[in-house]
Nucleic acid binder design. Sequence first.
DNA 1: AAGGTTTCTTAATCTACTTCATTTTTAGTC
DNA 2: GACTAAAAATGAAGTAGATTAAGAAACCTT
Lengths: 195, 195
Amino acid sequence: MKDYSSIINNINRYVSLSSEEEENLVSIIKTSRIKKKQFIIQPGFVCHSRTYIVEGAFRVYYLDKDGKEHTVSIGVEDWFVTDFQSYIDQSPAVNFAEALEDSLIFQMRYDDIEALCKKFHNLSEYFRLTTEKAFAFSRRRVISSISNTAEERYDEYVAKYPHIVQRVPQYILASYLGMSAEFLSKIRKQKMQKS
Amino acid sequence: MKDYSSIINNINRYVSLSSEEEENLVSIIKTSRIKKKQFIIQPGFVCHSRTYIVEGAFRVYYLDKDGKEHTVSIGVEDWFVTDFQSYIDQSPAVNFAEALEDSLIFQMRYDDIEALCKKFHNLSEYFRLTTEKAFAFSRRRVISSISNTAEERYDEYVAKYPHIVQRVPQYILASYLGMSAEFLSKIRKQKMQKS
DNA sequence: AAGGTTTCTTAATCTACTTCATTTTTAGTC
DNA sequence: GACTAAAAATGAAGTAGATTAAGAAACCTT
């Protein structure tokens, strides 16, 4: 019997699952270990599952026409990783999702989740509420990327996710924050000198 | 008996409402007419409702520390307008929502929606599915704002929303796309000359 | 139709950030 | 513990786009 407490606790922060619901949910989970640098999503392939990170870290990124990397999201324990567009309409992904560390993940397939959401009101509510949060978060990021300077965006991120800053290579963080790796390096240098 | 067919049709694109569900939903709708330039959301006040646009157009924007406007969203008929962060945790808004034209709206309060989502599985599903779409959309916008040039962002918008481009002042579109009004004017001039 | 307000244009100057090319540091591997 | 690869730093030169300030259209409103 595996330990699903991490994801169950996550869900129970939003709704109260009955044991029947819990059993059904657990039954659609597939567990995998993923080595650092391994991909779980690649462009051209449909993103069939939502992936929950039990241990480890991932990033989602894509390559633009000039071959430059842009990091869409960075996730650690207790977060989900997806190419969301690919997932919701089961169309080919445009992003890569890559393990930044050796990781342990739970995966639940689209069809199974949709079936459970139709069957259990509570699960529908869980995904509704968490997606609402994710959407609000994404809007704040749009605002930030439109109206803040590179340095402000970096400061904001450090204030909010100090633990992630330590764990993730700087050039990846730069590409997440929408600036060049060199410029982030320069920003950090300035801060070192001031303090 | 008012005509709620626009919003009901919207919902029925995602789920099939029973007549009981439909009645309950309609019962929480408040209809208003809003004059151009009037605000329906203002910073400091909680955004109590989801607003559905029956006729007209709105924009959500906020003022940064330098007093510059940044447009978060632009909506026309059959769209929703919200300060989403304020709405989902019923905290004070940071944005304005302003009518760009004389408009007709339906408003549904947070408490009423949450109660109906708890009561009716179908409504929970409707909001889950639409929010998932909105989230995917927002992610694409983040990517676009991080990795495309101003001109590319403009082209993308024109291709996708040609009808909205006509209806909305240019300086508002510029602030939505994350560029100065002057620069958008320059981009448009270039295009005129090329063709 | 006149007067005022709002929106759009144009051009000059300025700057936040990129790009490129090289070097140094850190981390991973046999 | 040496070797290689990956990541970070550094500095010079270039550029996309902002800012400023002024004038020209477009638009309400009486």
